[in-house]
Design a protein around this nucleic acid. Sequence first.
DNA 1: CTTAGTTGCTTCGAACTCGAAGCACATGAC
DNA 2: GTCATGTGCTTCGAGTTCGAAGCAACTAAG
Lengths: 172, 172
Amino acid sequence: MDQPPSSLTSTQLTAYFAFTEVSSLLRHAVEQQLRDAGNLSYVQFQLLARLGDSPDGQRRMTDLADGVVYSRSGLTYQAQLLEQRGLVTRAPSADDERSVVVTLTEAGRDILATVFPGHIEALHHLLFATLSDDDVDELARILGRAAEHLRATPPRSAAPRRRKTSPERAAP
Amino acid sequence: MDQPPSSLTSTQLTAYFAFTEVSSLLRHAVEQQLRDAGNLSYVQFQLLARLGDSPDGQRRMTDLADGVVYSRSGLTYQAQLLEQRGLVTRAPSADDERSVVVTLTEAGRDILATVFPGHIEALHHLLFATLSDDDVDELARILGRAAEHLRATPPRSAAPRRRKTSPERAAP
DNA sequence: CTTAGTTGCTTCGAACTCGAAGCACATGAC
DNA sequence: GTCATGTGCTTCGAGTTCGAAGCAACTAAG
């Protein structure tokens, strides 16, 4: 293996701190814009956006939760709120009675359409304004790789729920 | 100014999504490590780390809050928890009776020392394992610039607390 | 078919977070 | 000095978050 990494290089530290700082500040700013523009929390926006991304505007709860890195119970709560506001509907899946399929409503699409331009603009102002095209390329490349790695890396030593039968199974 | 940015390039979108995903996943993973290693939340660790960074192990509440992009009231709460655990002390500042100076205790330093190696290692595994030195350089450079920009950019149209002396209200 | 184990979601309780309001000290104008 | 205002922090209430436990439906094994 590599040498035991008991410390980080100065550049790595810089990168890490910058990352966390950008993450926090960007999130705060975006959150405020979403609140102002459509009275949506960041999570709610992410959920709606993810639904809007789907060709039929539908997703299962679990897929939504995984997509936004969110707890199941937290998603249940937010889905209730969105349903109360009429932005989504929830119904058991036909295939699997356990599953709940969340569907974007017209009102949901409207809100999304209302909020999106401001969201884009905020991103421009806050993040991309100071970055060159090359920078963005680099970011996309580097973070894309990191994301892929993180997705593949089990959260910790123990997986939350494991198959027990077959020794190995290809990802569904 | 520029043309109104009503959309993002495909690469920008990729970069943004990758960024948010890395941010979420990394944070979750790190949070778990900190919880396991020292029963610390991410915020608590950040606060202790920030105190540890200070030459005398002291910081004012407000500076701490700003440093970690956190609400004042939230910081009061966390500082209480840390104080109860004996990891920090709080005392009014001599200079300014309003200020509260938070000081890292020996126990606080111990916890930091306990948790740090695992934290570093987690970062290696999760983030830096797949990145080349050049990648890290690029990240540090790009995100450093972005962070600087974000720090300088007012959160949104309104500043939290405005001077009132000047007759004109600042532009909304 | 029956049983056991798995998976999808919700409920519940506890913990955390924020903003608004409040309190106390500080600072400047007069 | 007094008064008005700004600043640092805490308290309070409401809303949000999570994990554990619980329920219902699917699936595999016998």
